[in-house]
Each structure stands twice: as C-alpha cells, then as structure tokens.
Amino acid sequence: MSGTDPSPPGVPLLEASGLDAGYKTGGSGARVVVGNVNFAVGQGDRVAVLGANGSGKTTLLKTCVGLIPALGGVSLLGGHPVGRLHPRQRARMVAWVPQISESAWPFTVRELVAQGRYAARGPFSAYTGEDKDAVNAAIERLELEELADRPFRQLSGGEARRVLIARAVAQDTPLVALDEPAAHLDPGRQMELLELLAELAAEGKAIVVSLHDINAARRFAASVLLIDRSGRAHFGPPEDSLRPERLEDAYDTEFLHGHHEGYGRFVLPLARKRKGAPGSLR
C-alpha cells in the first residue's frame, strides 16, 4: 500500500478546526472528551482514528460528521459548518457507517441498502433508475447478492457490517466515516474490509475510519489521528502519530516495535504498564 498523500485542489472535504467533541451533561454542563482537534481530509485520503477504549473515537467521528453538536471549534464539510447544513445536504457529502444498526423492523438487506438513497431522492420523489442502479451496484460491490432478500437482523456480524457499508456506498458521498468497522472481524475478514476501503479511496472517496488494530491502521492509512489518554489528538503520518512513546502513553501499554522488509513497521503489545508487573504474561 502506497503512502501517498493526494491533496485535492480547493476546499477540503472535511476540516476540523479547534474542534471540541463531547457530551452535554444534565443542565448546562458539558464534558469535552477530545479537545482542540485540528485536521483536514481531502479526496482519496485514508485516515485512521486510533485511541484506547473510551478515548472518544466515536464521539469525535460523530461530531465531525454532524451527528453530535460540537462543544467548541468547528467541523467543516466542504467548507460549510456541519451544524448549519440541512440534514440532506450533509448526507450527500458524508456517509456514516455505525458499528451496529438495530432497526425496529425486519427490513431485508435490499430495503436497508435502499435507505442510502434517501439523501439523493428525499421523502416523496419516486426512486429512479439511477437509484436502483446505485443500490444494485452497492449490493454487488459488497457481494451481498445472495443475502439481498434476507432480513437484515438474521445476518452475522460480518455480513451486517458489509450491508451497512453497502448502504454508505449507495449513498454515493465523497466522504465515508466508519465507526470501528473491523470490530469482531477475524483477521481475514479484517484485511478484506481494509482492502475494500482502500479500493474506495483509490476511486476518490475519502475514508475516515476508527480502528483498534494499530498494525492494520498503519498499513491502511496515509494519516493517523491518535487520541491520547488526556483527550489530545495527534494527527499526522503514521510514523509521527504512532511514535513509540505516543503509543505507550495512549494505550498505557508497552509495545515491541518490529520491522519487516516487505511490510514495514509493526508493533506487538507486550504488557500493561500500570497494572501487573511488566512481562507478567511471559
């Protein structure tokens, strides 16, 4: 995988500037989980968001795409503050792939993928040939033909993930944000997923994806945004964001850092830093 960094002309697809992501607590209070985030994403970019459990990866992603209001700073989609965009305008610029989707009703895979066309067509206009083609193409792209008429709820975790990505593909946006799409996937499925995301990026889509697997992130992403334990975000090329001391601090864990001639650098988690003596697993 090449580490090129295609920078598009003009305005970035997504730009966070001094962005504070977090939650409003009861009353007028608010809790910033990740503060003062600055980064920009352009056409074809591959960005991985890393950080420990509870570090705020999901919160940050949701804030960037406008599903949670920013507590400070601003997230711009195509130069527009995301909070001021109409939901349909926003949904034509960025597709969101949640970790799980729990529909109240047993929709079929095809029906669920077709919901990706809402942004393009709106509540009343009949679906056109263009919509049908987009849905069929997305279903083929994710190899869901066999499952197309099965209820979404009956699918395995990996299959369900593919359906949600298909819906995002049908939504046909220049930017796709995914919340830990590799969670609970076996190594083979995980590689398959990342290869697919890399393909989408090669076609010009910008991909912002939160991941747990540091090695996978390093292989996939041209840029990494690492959230440390104090809620600071470090954005840059992997060799910078994933420096040994940064990683150790973000995950509170000692890593073995290795290098493979063909694949480059990799890490192996060795021991938790605080709890237990180092090397207690040995």
């Binding site: 795409v65 599903l67 939901p87 597709a95 949640p98 809402y118």
Partner: peptide
C-alpha cells in the same frame, strides 16, 4: 443518529 446520517431530521 442513523436517520440523521441518512439525511433526515
């Protein structure tokens, strides 16, 4: 959340 991400308020 999902409805909003698909373009609905």
């Amino acid at each position: 959340d999902e409805a909003a991400s698909l373009g609905l308020s």
